[in-house]
C-alpha cells in the first residue's frame, strides 16, 4: 500500500527535493532564493500555457521518456531487479535522445549527442554497482539488498565512484555539460514548451528520486543511515555544484571513466577475494 502511495507521489517527492535544492543553492550564493514550493508553481504554470509543438514524434518521445522514468522509479520502489532497472533507465534515456534527434534544431542535437556520450561514462559504473550488490547479496533484487545490512562499508570505493555520476544524472556542475544552459540552452529540452515541457520538468524530478533512491540502497536496512546518506549526498552535490565550473564533455568522460572505473574495479576485485 505504502509502495503504491510512494510511486504515485514520486514526482512530488522529487519536487520537494528540487525546491529544497534551489533554496540551498541560493543560500550558498548569499541569496534568499525561491520558496520551497517553487517547482510546483512552475508545474502549475506550465500546465496553463499554450501548447506549441514542432512535430508529433518529438512530443511523444518526450512524454515516453517521462513515463518510462516513472516506471523505473516504480520498479525501484517495488524492489525489482537492479540490473534490469539500470537497463530500463537506459531505455528512458534513449527515448529522450531520440526526441532530441527528431527535430532539426542544433542545440537539441548537441544535447542529445552529449547525452549519448555521457552514457559511456555512467552506464559501466552503474552496471558495476549492480554486480557488486549481486556479489554481496547473491541477487540483483533490490528487495534483497534492502533486507540485508548496509553495504556501504564493503563497497566504499564503489560508493565514491557512484558519487561521481550523481552530478551527471542530476545535471549539476561540474558534470552538467549535457544540459549546459549557457552553451546549448538546456540541450534536449530546448524545443519543448508548455505542457510538453512539463513532462521533461517532471522527468527531472523523477531523476532526483531515482538517484537518491540508489544512494539510499547503500544503507541497506538501516533507515537512519539511509537518511544520513541522503542528506550528506544532497549537501555534497550542492556544495560541489557551487564551487566548480562546468567542464567539457570530453573531460567529463575521461575523469569519470578513469577514476570511476578504477575505483569500481579495485572494489570488486577486493570483494572477490574476501
Amino acid at each position: 500500500m505504502i509502495e503504491i502511495l510512494l510511486i504515485i507521489l514520486a514526482p512530488i517527492i522529487g519536487g520537494f527535493i528540487y525546491g529544497a535544492e534551489r533554496i540551498v543553492r541560493a543560500r550558498m550564493q548569499n541569496r534568499l532564493g525561491p520558496p520551497l514550493l517553487q517547482p510546483f508553481y512552475d508545474m502549475y504554470k506550465l500546465m496553463d500555457k499554450q501548447a506549441f509543438i514542432i512535430n508529433s514524434y518529438h512530443t511523444i518521445l518526450g512524454i515516453m521518456h517521462f513515463v518510462t522514468l516513472w516506471v523505473v522509479v516504480a520498479f525501484v520502489i517495488v524492489g525489482q531487479n537492479l540490473l534490469y532497472i539500470i537497463f530500463l533507465h537506459l531505455l528512458s534515456s534513449i527515448f529522450l535522445i531520440l526526441a532530441g534527434f527528431s527535430v532539426k534544431s542544433i542545440y537539441s542535437h548537441i544535447g542529445a549527442n552529449r547525452e549519448l556520450i555521457a552514457m559511456i561514462a555512467y552506464e559501466p559504473i552503474l552496471i558495476m554497482l549492480a554486480v557488486a550488490f549481486f556479489m554481496l547479496n547473491g541477487s540483483f533484487e533490490i528487495s534483497a539488498i534492502r533486507e540485508n545490512s548496509s553495504a556501504l562499508f564493503s563497497i566504499p570505493l564503489l560508493f565514491l565512484a557512484f558519487l561521481l555520476i550523481v552530478p551527471i544524472k542530476l545535471k549539476k556542475s561540474p558534470f552538467d555539460a549535457i544540459q549546459a544552459h549557457q552553451e546549448i540552452i538546456g540541450g534536449v529540452e530546448v524545443e519543448f514548451s508548455g505542457i510538453f515541457f512539463e513532462f521533461l520538468y517532471m522527468a527531472k524530478l523523477l531523476e532526483y528520486v531515482f538517484i537518491y533512491a540508489l544512494v539510499m540502497l547503500f544503507a541497506g536496512d538501516s533507515f537512519i543511515l539511509a537518511l544520513t546518506l541522503f542528506l550528506a549526498v544532497f549537501f555534497l552535490v550542492n556544495l560541489l555544484d557551487n564551487s566548480t565550473a562546468r567542464i567539457r564533455i570530453d573531460h567529463l568522460i575521461k575523469i569519470v571513466l578513469v577514476i570511476g572505473l578504477t575505483l569500481a574495479t579495485l572494489n570488486i576485485i577486493g570483494l572477490s577475494y574476501v
Binding site: Q50, A51, F52, T59, S105, I185
Partner: peptide
C-alpha cells in the same frame, strides 16, 4: 497544438 519553428 500550434506548430512553431525550431529555436534558432
Amino acid at each position: 497544438a500550434h506548430r512553431v519553428k525550431e529555436y534558432n
